[in-house]
Measured scan of single mutants.
Amino acid sequence: ITGDVSAANKDAIRKQMDAAASKGDVETYRKLKAKLKGIR
């Protein structure tokens, strides 16, 4: 179950990262990237 949750989280975070990148929001992008590392 835990694996599914983190996989879903990663997917959601990647989508947020894409949105931040397209807006040029480097700050948010970095925060999300750090979150991704924390999940692993």
Results as ranks from 00 to 15, higher is better:
1 I>H: 11
1 I>M: 10
1 I>Q: 10
1 I>L: 09
1 I>N: 09
1 I>P: 09
1 I>S: 10
1 I>Y: 13
1 I>C: 13
1 I>W: 13
2 T>M: 10
2 T>F: 12
2 T>L: 09
2 T>Q: 09
2 T>H: 12
2 T>K: 11
2 T>R: 12
2 T>A: 11
2 T>W: 13
2 T>N: 10
3 G>N: 10
3 G>K: 10
3 G>M: 11
3 G>S: 10
3 G>E: 09
3 G>V: 12
3 G>R: 08
3 G>D: 10
3 G>P: 09
3 G>F: 08
4 D>S: 11
4 D>A: 12
4 D>I: 10
4 D>Q: 12
4 D>V: 12
4 D>F: 08
4 D>Y: 06
4 D>G: 10
4 D>P: 09
4 D>M: 12
4 D>T: 11
5 V>I: 12
5 V>Y: 10
5 V>P: 10
5 V>Q: 09
5 V>L: 12
5 V>S: 11
5 V>K: 11
5 V>W: 11
5 V>N: 11
5 V>C: 15
5 V>G: 10
6 S>P: 08
6 S>M: 12
6 S>G: 09
6 S>W: 07
6 S>A: 07
6 S>Q: 11
6 S>Y: 08
6 S>R: 12
6 S>F: 09
6 S>K: 09
6 S>I: 12
6 S>H: 10
7 A>E: 09
7 A>I: 10
7 A>P: 09
7 A>H: 10
7 A>L: 11
7 A>G: 08
7 A>Q: 10
7 A>D: 08
7 A>V: 09
7 A>R: 13
8 A>P: 09
8 A>L: 13
8 A>H: 12
8 A>I: 11
8 A>S: 10
8 A>Y: 10
8 A>R: 11
9 N>K: 13
9 N>E: 14
9 N>W: 15
9 N>S: 12
9 N>A: 13
9 N>H: 13
9 N>G: 08
9 N>C: 15
9 N>M: 15
10 K>H: 13
10 K>M: 15
10 K>Y: 15
10 K>A: 15
10 K>S: 09
10 K>T: 13
10 K>L: 15
10 K>P: 10
11 D>R: 14
11 D>Q: 11
11 D>H: 09
11 D>I: 11
11 D>V: 09
11 D>A: 13
11 D>F: 03
11 D>E: 11
11 D>P: 04
11 D>N: 09
11 D>K: 12
12 A>L: 12
12 A>P: 03
12 A>W: 14
12 A>R: 07
12 A>F: 11
12 A>N: 07
12 A>S: 11
12 A>M: 12
13 I>E: 01
13 I>F: 03
13 I>T: 03
13 I>L: 08
13 I>H: 02
13 I>K: 02
13 I>G: 01
13 I>N: 02
14 R>D: 02
14 R>T: 05
14 R>L: 13
14 R>S: 04
14 R>F: 06
14 R>Q: 08
14 R>H: 06
14 R>V: 05
14 R>E: 05
14 R>Y: 08
14 R>K: 07
15 K>M: 08
15 K>Y: 05
15 K>L: 08
15 K>Q: 08
15 K>A: 12
15 K>G: 04
15 K>H: 06
15 K>D: 04
15 K>P: 01
15 K>N: 04
16 Q>A: 14
16 Q>C: 09
16 Q>H: 04
16 Q>R: 06
16 Q>W: 08
16 Q>T: 02
16 Q>F: 06
16 Q>P: 02
16 Q>N: 03
16 Q>E: 08
17 M>S: 01
17 M>C: 03
17 M>Y: 02
17 M>V: 02
17 M>N: 02
17 M>D: 00
17 M>I: 03
17 M>W: 01
17 M>G: 01
17 M>K: 01
17 M>L: 04
17 M>H: 01
18 D>L: 15
18 D>T: 12
18 D>E: 14
18 D>S: 11
18 D>M: 15
18 D>F: 15
18 D>A: 15
18 D>C: 15
18 D>Q: 15
18 D>V: 14
19 A>D: 12
19 A>N: 05
19 A>L: 14
19 A>R: 06
19 A>E: 14
19 A>Y: 11
19 A>M: 10
19 A>P: 02
20 A>G: 02
20 A>M: 02
20 A>R: 01
20 A>F: 02
21 A>M: 15
21 A>D: 02
21 A>K: 14
21 A>P: 01
21 A>F: 14
21 A>Y: 14
21 A>L: 15
21 A>Q: 07
21 A>T: 03
21 A>E: 04
22 S>Y: 06
22 S>L: 14
22 S>G: 05
22 S>W: 06
22 S>D: 06
22 S>I: 09
22 S>H: 07
22 S>R: 14
22 S>M: 13
23 K>V: 11
23 K>W: 03
23 K>Y: 04
23 K>D: 05
23 K>S: 08
23 K>E: 06
23 K>G: 04
23 K>R: 14
23 K>T: 07
23 K>I: 14
23 K>Q: 08
23 K>L: 07
24 G>E: 02
24 G>K: 03
24 G>Y: 03
24 G>F: 04
24 G>R: 03
24 G>A: 03
25 D>F: 01
25 D>R: 00
25 D>N: 01
25 D>Y: 01
25 D>P: 00
25 D>V: 00
25 D>W: 03
25 D>K: 00
25 D>A: 01
25 D>I: 01
26 V>I: 13
26 V>W: 15
26 V>S: 06
26 V>E: 07
26 V>A: 07
26 V>G: 03
26 V>Q: 07
26 V>P: 03
27 E>H: 05
27 E>L: 05
27 E>A: 06
27 E>D: 08
27 E>G: 02
27 E>I: 07
27 E>R: 07
27 E>Q: 05
28 T>W: 07
28 T>R: 07
28 T>P: 00
28 T>F: 05
28 T>V: 05
28 T>Q: 08
28 T>H: 04
28 T>S: 06
29 Y>I: 03
29 Y>L: 07
29 Y>E: 00
29 Y>Q: 01
29 Y>T: 01
29 Y>K: 00
29 Y>W: 07
29 Y>S: 00
29 Y>V: 04
29 Y>M: 05
29 Y>N: 00
30 R>N: 07
30 R>G: 00
30 R>T: 04
30 R>P: 00
30 R>H: 04
30 R>M: 11
30 R>F: 07
30 R>Q: 07
30 R>A: 05
31 K>H: 04
31 K>P: 00
31 K>C: 15
31 K>V: 02
31 K>T: 04
31 K>I: 05
31 K>F: 05
31 K>A: 06
32 L>Q: 00
32 L>K: 00
32 L>R: 01
32 L>G: 01
32 L>Y: 03
32 L>W: 03
32 L>N: 00
32 L>H: 00
32 L>T: 00
32 L>A: 00
32 L>F: 03
32 L>D: 00
33 K>L: 15
33 K>D: 01
33 K>R: 11
33 K>N: 03
33 K>P: 00
33 K>E: 08
34 A>D: 04
34 A>V: 05
34 A>E: 06
34 A>P: 00
35 K>N: 01
35 K>R: 08
35 K>D: 00
35 K>A: 09
35 K>E: 04
35 K>L: 15
35 K>S: 06
35 K>F: 14
35 K>Y: 13
35 K>I: 15
36 L>P: 00
36 L>I: 03
36 L>S: 00
36 L>R: 03
36 L>T: 01
36 L>H: 02
36 L>D: 00
37 K>V: 08
37 K>W: 03
37 K>H: 11
37 K>D: 14
37 K>L: 13
37 K>P: 03
37 K>T: 07
37 K>M: 13
37 K>G: 05
37 K>F: 05
38 G>S: 12
38 G>L: 12
38 G>P: 03
38 G>I: 08
38 G>M: 11
38 G>F: 10
38 G>E: 13
38 G>Y: 12
38 G>Q: 14
39 I>Q: 06
39 I>R: 06
39 I>P: 05
39 I>H: 06
39 I>F: 13
39 I>D: 04
39 I>W: 12
39 I>E: 05
40 R>T: 12
40 R>I: 14
40 R>W: 13
40 R>L: 14
40 R>Q: 13
40 R>N: 13
40 R>Y: 12
40 R>V: 14
40 R>C: 15
40 R>H: 11
40 R>G: 12
40 R>S: 13
40 R>F: 13
40 R>A: 12
40 R>M: 14
